[in-house]
Computed example of a mutant assay.
Amino acid sequence: MRAFVFPGQGSQKVGMGVELADASAVAREVFQEVDDALGQNLFRIMAQGPEDALTLTENAQPAIMANAIAVLRVLEKEGGLALADKADFVAGHSLGEYTALCAAGAFSLADTARLLKLRGQSMQAAVPVGVGAMAALLGADIEKATALAEAAAQGQVCTVANDNDPGQVVLSGHREAIERAIALVKDHGIKRGVLLPVSAPFHCPLMQPAAEAMAEAFVATAPGALRVALYANVTASVVTDPVEVRRLLVEQVTGRVRWRESAIAMAQAGVERFVELGGKVLGPMIKRSAGEVDVTSVVTMADIEELAKSF
Rank of each mutant, 00 (worst) to 15 (best):
A103M: 03
G278N: 08
D303G: 01
V34Q: 11
A151S: 13
V298K: 08
G173P: 01
M16N: 02
Q252H: 07
R73M: 05
A106R: 10
K86R: 13
A267D: 09
A210S: 14
T296R: 11
L148Y: 05
A161N: 12
L249T: 06
L184Y: 03
A308Q: 02
G17D: 12
P166Q: 06
V169R: 09
D241F: 06
F6M: 04
S237A: 12
A87K: 07
I142R: 09
W259G: 11
A217K: 05
L95V: 15
A25R: 04
G155Y: 03
V34G: 04
G17Y: 10
R227N: 04
M266A: 03
S108C: 02
V239R: 08
A145Y: 01
L184Q: 12
V185H: 12
T159K: 02
A225F: 06
S11T: 15
V293L: 09
A125E: 15
R114H: 06
A290R: 11
Q124W: 14
Q121V: 03
L101W: 04
A147V: 03
L118S: 12
A135S: 10
F218I: 15
G193A: 14
D22T: 13
E272L: 02
L230T: 01
D111L: 10
A3I: 13
R119D: 07
K117P: 00
K86W: 11
R192Y: 06
V194I: 15
Q124T: 15
A91I: 08
V169F: 04
L249S: 04
V157M: 02
A232E: 10
P201R: 09
N59E: 02
L307Y: 01
A147H: 02
P209I: 13
V90S: 00
L206V: 15
T159F: 00
V253Q: 03
L171H: 10
M16K: 06
E78N: 08
A210E: 13
R44P: 09
Q121S: 10
L148C: 05
L230W: 12
G80P: 01
T296G: 00
A25D: 09
G92L: 06
E19M: 03
H93L: 15
V257R: 05
E244L: 11
A3F: 13
G193C: 11
E306Y: 02
C204F: 09
A236E: 04
A66F: 12
T240R: 05
T159M: 00
P201C: 13
S11D: 10
P62W: 12
P50G: 00
G173S: 07
A140Y: 07
V30L: 01
G279T: 02
D85K: 14
E33F: 05
E244R: 14
L184C: 01
R247N: 14
P62F: 12
